[in-house]
């Protein structure tokens, strides 16, 4: 479970860097996503990437409920375990 959460966390970091709003190394998994330039549009993009990567339909509210990379990785890992 922990390994999976860690893997999701790394993947999320990679995605956030790929969106080009922040440089890798300039943030931690506990930095609020809002501070990483992830507005509501990027939240939806992230949801799309999550759908593609994990074959799991998610609402943007998952980002509202889990506003950091660490929390989001935890939330996703729970959803995946439940799916």
């Amino acid at each position: 479970m922990n390994t999976q959460t860690d893997a999701i966390e790394s993947w999320l970091v990679e995605r956030v860097v790929a969106y080009g709003k922040v440089d890798s190394g300039s943030f931690t998994p506990d930095t609020p996503l809002a501070e990483l330039g992830l507005d509501s549009v990027y939240a939806l993009t992230l949801c799309g990437d999550i759908e593609d990567e994990f074959d799991l339909d998610v609402d943007p509210t998952i980002v509202w409920d889990h506003p950091t990379i660490r929390e989001l990785a935890g939330g996703l890992s729970e959803r995946l375990a439940a799916a």
């Binding site: 549009v41 939806l44 993009t45």
Partner: peptide, 10 residues
């Protein structure tokens, strides 16, 4: 609708 276009497409 706009930010949901990729989701709609899928």
């Amino acid at each position: 609708i706009l930010p949901n276009l990729p989701a709609w497409l899928r």
